[in-house]
Design a protein around this nucleic acid. Sequence first.
DNA 1: CTGTTAGCGCATTCAC
DNA 2: GTGAATGCGCTAACAG
Lengths: 327, 327
Amino acid sequence: MATIKDVAKRAGVAVSTASYALNGVKKVSDATLQKVLQAAEELHYQKNGFASDLKRTKTNTIALILRDLSGPFYSELIRGIQEVTTANGYDLIACSAIGGDDSTATKFLKEKRVDGAIVLAHNISDDIIKASANADFPVVVLDRHLDNPHILHVEVDNYQGGWIATEHLIEKGHKSIAFISGPKNSHDSEMRYKGYRDALEKHNLTFQSRFKFTGDFQRESGYRSTKMLIAQQNLPDAIFYANDEMAIGGLKAFADNGIRVPEDISIIGFDDIQISEYLNPPLTTIRQPKYEVGALSAHMIFQLFTGEDVEKHYSLVTELVERESVK
Amino acid sequence: MATIKDVAKRAGVAVSTASYALNGVKKVSDATLQKVLQAAEELHYQKNGFASDLKRTKTNTIALILRDLSGPFYSELIRGIQEVTTANGYDLIACSAIGGDDSTATKFLKEKRVDGAIVLAHNISDDIIKASANADFPVVVLDRHLDNPHILHVEVDNYQGGWIATEHLIEKGHKSIAFISGPKNSHDSEMRYKGYRDALEKHNLTFQSRFKFTGDFQRESGYRSTKMLIAQQNLPDAIFYANDEMAIGGLKAFADNGIRVPEDISIIGFDDIQISEYLNPPLTTIRQPKYEVGALSAHMIFQLFTGEDVEKHYSLVTELVERESVK
DNA sequence: CTGTTAGCGCATTCAC
DNA sequence: GTGAATGCGCTAACAG
């Protein structure tokens, strides 16, 4: 591999001149610029990214840290991040947090292999994140609350979402409403549940514990919980699934048992994932402003880069998307 | 940020000693090892990844290059890659190819910011890939054929897939079969189409050009093409969608028009994406061995690293997954 | 406008 | 075992 020295030599100039020419610094005459460029071309010169980063102590890329690269994927969220990072001339890479504190993600965080990070990965410990964040290394977390001056938060108002989902069901005349939750340690799910409980209470509807099941946000668990609900005989009027994936599992369980949605039972999900409108019936759900969450997260990082004052905490509101799974 | 020099100084040893201690090279006495470790701890020492990479000229990570980080995502494929890379002690990052030859992905490729790459991104030009691949930098391409000694290929037998999809439809008694293709420049789609045509021919079924539509592998295009097909009045007996996403769009178009699947028309997809079995009706489709493609791709890279001889080209077979969208 | 020079932080000889 | 010295490839003063 040719280095910048080779290029300089071939072009008959000093290394620095070659560097300036190659980096578009306007200090070189047109003639030498051409010479350098041509030499680089002939040598198939490619700069060594690490050497460059090392020197600049800046990578121009930010990392998105995901629990698992193989999904589930929030494409809208990523699109939001992506658009803002590209608009700012930054690169974006995604790292997996598989392996937890011993993962690729942790390495990138600790060794500062990027200029900033957005994390959405429960399996990275708070300590790692706190230890990594500092004035020159902003990190925004999407999945927890961390008390640290250099950590930014963006979250959606899950309580409000749980509330409007339940209100909608009640408004439509449903009295007995089941709730299929996410995993126990999910703060998001817990807040949605709180919203559900409070809405129930406000309308003097009693909560029945046999109508609460614990899932794990996966399709399969929605399927299983629903099967159990069906097996229990007397079905509720409606089910509020803590996310769309589980609602999809539920839909399948109902189809398996010849139970029609929404004729026999109404269901509502949470998230409004892309596929939801293509289901049969199209799923009524609570839309999370995922694109906005992503875009905002990235924005905050760039604001910090430019030394602006930024709000450390944002909470975004959800909205009801009415389709056909609630009658 | 403390550097290794600071650590060495604090521990009262030479830099090299500190380096050995930190990297677990068994050349240091237990006593000094402890001293160094403790000094590092006290200073919150974190090695600079770039400096390390620069020196080693090795990053221990491989890149997965995707057209767009925001999906559509082949989670099975990524899982395959992920498992093999982790098993080999390597890190995996995903880069977006948005921006084509001016993207993050291109930068990682050209500047060799990783040790190897797997590319699944039509929007990166052949030239870039060819220019990047060399004996020390293996790249496996999943979406094209490239004539270069250092480029490896893994593909699925799309021709065979197109063939069995069509055969299945014919076997079930369908005579007029429409084909909704992927984008024009997609080699995959082209091969599926060839399989379709040949199967038709073998059974003396004439191909009707009014039953061929060009889509772009996106849900929306499946929806639009299907709408057009419906508008044309007399529907075919069955439709072969070049991928599941478009079939989902098709399903929606039929639902919109009160046309029942499979009672009124049969449809078959291609890919067997996760959601397919949850659709209504569950989608009959051609399963691509995605996990295997991913795992194999990663394997090939590691084989190359260890200097083994590797087959430059693999073609994996597809299989029919019968569900309920074909009657 | 161009060339010289000094590190960036680290791993790695090679003597001791 | 240890430590001094060297350079990876590049950028950025600083002189000229």
